[in-house]
Simulated assay, not measured.
Amino acid sequence: MSIGALDAASAYARVLGTGAGKPAAPTTSSSEGGGAFGVMVEDLVSSTAATMRTAEQATAAQVAGKGDLIDVVTAMGAAETALDTMVAVRDRVVSAYQDIMRMQI
């Protein structure tokens, strides 16, 4: 699956909760030096982990006979989307780092 620049930008905007058309306000913490990007990555990782846990719980409930198949499919779809978003952001960060390392001083 190929993820383009527009898809990555849309995912970034969704993670920040701003929507695709609105500019994001920086959410820096005065005690941290990481800035808005660090906070965004931390939130992305924690929300992805929570989504994966929810999918695992729905799957376990279905296996135990207490869950609904539609809930499992929905949770798995949400987990897959969250993981794809996280991988896309990671790939873009690695690509940007490699571009910076190739720059001449």
Rank of each mutant, 00 (worst) to 15 (best):
F37S: 06
A50E: 13
T51V: 14
V39D: 03
P26R: 00
A55W: 01
A55M: 05
M40K: 00
G35R: 02
V45Y: 00
G38K: 04
A20Q: 07
T51N: 00
A50L: 14
P26D: 04
D43V: 07
S46H: 08
D43Y: 10
A49Y: 03
A36C: 07
A25W: 03
P23G: 13
S47N: 01
M40I: 03
A24R: 03
S31H: 13
R53Q: 14
T27I: 05
G34M: 13
G35L: 01
K22D: 09
L44G: 04
E56C: 12
P23N: 10
P23R: 08
T48R: 04
T48K: 04
T28H: 08
T54P: 02
E42P: 02
E42S: 04
A24T: 00
T51R: 00
K22S: 15
M52N: 15
E32G: 11
G21M: 12
L44M: 03
A36S: 07
T51P: 01
A55I: 05
V39Q: 04
S47E: 04
S47P: 07
E32M: 12
V41F: 05
A24N: 00
R53C: 14
S30H: 08
A36M: 02
V41I: 15
T27Q: 05
K22R: 07
Q57F: 11
V41G: 09
S47R: 00
T28D: 12
T48M: 08
T48G: 10
M52T: 13
T54H: 05
G35F: 03
M40G: 01
A50N: 03
V41C: 06
T48A: 11
T54C: 14
T28I: 09
G33M: 11
A20T: 09
D43H: 09
K22A: 09
G33N: 12
M40N: 02
A20F: 01
T28V: 12
T48F: 08
G33A: 15
M40D: 03
G21W: 07
P23W: 08
S31E: 15
E56K: 08
A25S: 10
F37R: 07
T48I: 06
G38E: 13
P23H: 09
G33H: 06
M40L: 08
A20P: 02
G33W: 14
T48V: 11
T54M: 05
A20H: 01
V39Y: 09
V45N: 04
E56M: 14
A24Y: 05
G21Y: 14
A49H: 07
P23F: 13
